[in-house]
């Protein structure tokens, strides 16, 4: 019975947040456009030479994904904080980690998943091979949830700060460096035709670690900052 109740909280929040995202599409479409534009600036900046583009592609796409994720993160708890529903969630006896996981998952579905859908286009733009694209897909699939979770910690910390978007990036970007390192290494290694299992499992380990630990940090941060609007 209790288990079922917990699950219904999870699905309830998930459905509510997805519905809200459908109603306000600019919140997730704009970071996506930013991602696309940022990546396509690089060929203009460094020149159209295919070999060079292929070499820098993993780094460029991943750094752009990182920045786009940070842009999108700012809105995660903002609306709930401003209309007071965040405070309601904190006061209620419902399990906070469930609520947080549902919110982060909903947010990832509308901000992380589109990045993955967009990745074939970017791979073509940057001249990645088919193998490279598969590797990129895999790293985005494992890596963007980590970005969402880490970003949620930052979003929870700065939720009461006006125009906290830049501050959020300052706090969270250094913490994302391991993801960037392992993800780009996977794509580069795949590009030269070597085995990538090792790096992929490291990314998986990071994902497992952030799924278990960050809800604690997010809940703690929201209890500190999410109180009075």
């Amino acid at each position: 019975m209790r288990k079922q109740q917990t699950f219904s909280i999870f699905t309830g929040i998930l459905r509510r947040d997805l519905k809200l995202a459908v109603r306000a599409p600019s919140q997730w479409i704009n970071p996506l456009l930013f991602f696309l534009i940022a990546v396509s600036l690089f060929p203009l900046g460094v020149g159209p030479e295919q070999n060079m583009l292929r070499e820098i592609a993993p780094g460029v796409i991943w750094v752009a994904a990182l920045l786009a994720a940070m842009l999108a993160q700012d809105s995660l708890f903002r609306a709930d904080f401003e209309d007071g529903s965040l405070e309601q969630m904190l006061i209620s006896s419902r399990p906070m980690s469930m609520i947080i996981m549902a919110k982060v998952l909903a947010h990832w579905l509308v901000t992380g998943l589109p990045l993955i859908v967009l990745s074939p286009v970017l791979s073509i733009l940057m001249g990645l091979s088919l193998v490279g694209w598969w590797a990129l897909l895999l790293t985005l699939l494992l890596g963007t949830p980590i970005l969402s979770l880490l970003g949620a910690v930052g979003a929870a910390l700065v939720v009461s700060v006006k125009r906290g978007g830049v501050l959020l990036s300052l706090l969270v970007l250094p913490l994302c460096i391991p993801v960037l390192i392992f993800a780009t290494a996977v794509v580069q290694t795949a590009g030269v035709g070597l085995a990538i299992e090792g790096q992929v499992s490291l990314l998986g380990a990071l994902l497992a670690l952030s799924v278990t630990l960050s809800p604690i940090a997010i809940a703690g941060a929201l209890r500190v900052t999410g109180g009075a609007a």
Binding site: V153, L157, S160, L171, P174, L175, I177, P178, I181, F182, A185, L206, L209, L213, A217, G220, A221, V224, T225
Partner: peptide, 27 residues
């Protein structure tokens, strides 16, 4: 509020530092 938010950030940071250190060494 600033101190308690900062304290959470410090704890998140100190958990991350070994991971960052390892990843940078590996890189």
């Amino acid at each position: 509020t600033a101190w308690r938010a900062g304290a959470i950030l410090l704890l998140v940071g100190v958990v991350n530092i070994p991971i960052i250190h390892f990843s940078v060494d590996w890189w």
